[in-house]
Amino acid sequence: MARWGMVIDLDRCTGCGACVAACKVENNVQVVSPAEGERGRRMHWLRLLVEARGEYPHVEVRIAPNLCMMCENPPCTKVCPVHATYRGEDGLVGQIYPRCIGCRYCMAACPYSVKAFNWGSPEWPEALLSTLNPDVSMRPKGVVEKCTFCYHRLQLGREKARAEGRPLRESDYQPACVHSCPADAMTFGDLDDALSPAAQLSRSTRATRALEHLGTEPRVFYLEKRDAPL
């Protein structure tokens, strides 16, 4: 079985935010009011972490997309009292909303802070209702949600491959963020397939993983920026 993973090249990422927008639209992620946002209730499955180093005019801005790391050893699944978050057959960390009781233990346990809590019921402007993705549920108030690596796309990919009587190809399954990245900064694929570009990049000397010392074994790799003269 494929070991799906992602490699994000921080040298290529321009911080345009296309991945953030694509993720929101693809997964029906709630848009909260500015007032709620100020209270720390912004809803994102994928966000950009921005860090500025140095002093003007020698400033270096580092931007890193932050999403569920799909850890091989996830801390969140170990603390969930109702098995609402778990590692599935594909090794992807799933979140089953009807089972979630909203205790938020998983949010506290996640060292990457990539889970979001639904403080309110989903409300959508009339104009946006037609843009909702029917393949993804609307999460109710009181549950925790997170990135799924667009699992529904994996299902659709499998379905297509089966209908065509062939094995699943990497091109059949690409999460929305990867699909939308105009700079090709994100590469997705089977980390166990030696021929996969994602697997090859994950073995690059520039490859690193966030908070690796915690032993969570994330499946999201970052390619460090090459040193460039300021």
Binding site: G88, E89, Y97
Partner: peptide, 12 residues
């Protein structure tokens, strides 16, 4: 192989 029991297949 096509009828899995992964929860997220049907509940997501």
């Amino acid at each position: 192989p096509y009828a899995g029991v992964d929860c997220v297949d049907c509940h997501r």
